[in-house]
Design a protein around this nucleic acid. Sequence first.
DNA 1: AACACCCAAATTATACAAAGTCAATGATAG
DNA 2: CTATCATTGACTTTGTATAATTTGGGTGTT
Lengths: 224, 224
Amino acid sequence: MSEVLASSERKVFRPRPRMGLAELMRDDIVSGALPAGSLLKTIELSKRYGVSTNPIREALHQLSGEGFVVLSRNRSAQVRSLDETFVRNIFDIRTLIEPYLIRVFVEQARKDDLDRAREVQQRLEVTQGDQVEWDKLDEEFHGIMYKRHFNGEARAIRQRHGEVVRALARRYPISSARRATVLKDHWEIIEAVEAHDADRAAQVVERHARGAERHLLLRMREGA
Amino acid sequence: MSEVLASSERKVFRPRPRMGLAELMRDDIVSGALPAGSLLKTIELSKRYGVSTNPIREALHQLSGEGFVVLSRNRSAQVRSLDETFVRNIFDIRTLIEPYLIRVFVEQARKDDLDRAREVQQRLEVTQGDQVEWDKLDEEFHGIMYKRHFNGEARAIRQRHGEVVRALARRYPISSARRATVLKDHWEIIEAVEAHDADRAAQVVERHARGAERHLLLRMREGA
DNA sequence: AACACCCAAATTATACAAAGTCAATGATAG
DNA sequence: CTATCATTGACTTTGTATAATTTGGGTGTT
């Protein structure tokens, strides 16, 4: 019937544009490309990301579940502000969860896990300038210790919070002093795990998280 | 142009059916109406709930964010199994978060909060048979102590986990022995808060949560 | 200032097209 | 003859498009 819209004009069902529209949008939120408080209108977003409104709405629902946007009926979604309070909240939870996670690793750590951790740690030592590479290795280091924990819920919470923190850290890069402290903490964690000292490992991990929080907050205050 | 579909046949845009399709579906999941592991096909669901597939897809995304269903690309969503492992995982996290939450309440508790808590507690004492009423009051009791905590992320996690547990508890009702223990725990919490003893409050709350976990697991094993 | 009205945007319904999944079927090699 | 692998087709999800309708906020009138 209607040849008005020739096939040249019609958008042509991008098969798998998606390796995560929600992930894309989350990155844009945390990186500041979608500023806190801004109104996310589905049509604008659909233009911005080159998809129709349906996937946008689904992504918004997912992000709402994750706490990055606030939905209200018949109103534009709003970007959740990622301020100091938010960072503090996230790190409070992280400070509870990470010691809980590491205790299991102390008991179940295999030799090849520890070898891998040491290897990653050595690569961290020589990674100087590159923030992204550093973040990747740091996540891998901790990921080795948590990835086999039975509590998938806890792992998921830590994972989500980690993504926020990493994205924020890209905005406020790490100092070299902090890097040195991180490296020291990591070696101490490895030592504690090798010694099967769960209490010490948990304690170091907690201190490690608190240190990361303090450093990020400091950077946010002076860098904003 | 097309009058082919007369208004008699066309579904007529239900104006505000939705105060939570996702909530409806979540209840059906936790209550077992949508059995664990079953495949959630969007068309079937749209018939079941009397809406079109669009809202269904959005609800599925939200439930996926909340962890009740598992989405994989190009495959039907699957209902997450709410088994013992899941309960244990949730309570592990709850056992970390609730003591953290109560500590702030010990410091900030107002007189009217405590009065209200006592009032709710007295209503709990006389609530015998009604599981739903009991759950409502129990949630209100703890809600009083947590609702003003600054950490909205932690509150949200606890809230979500609480909903699951309550829904499961409807399937495996509480025993009268457990009720007595809960009442004793609650008075002990009130006492600790009044005495400004954060450590004791945290300790009691942790024990309270562990007790709830043990009781629910027991019921699940014998009741299934 | 109170009120009605209008408009932009969201919400829902529906239809259709493209692409992935899965299983059954059939062909082929050993 | 049997086991393995490729093809096919039904079913399902994912995406695009558009119409009908509600909602909430802003605008203008009294």
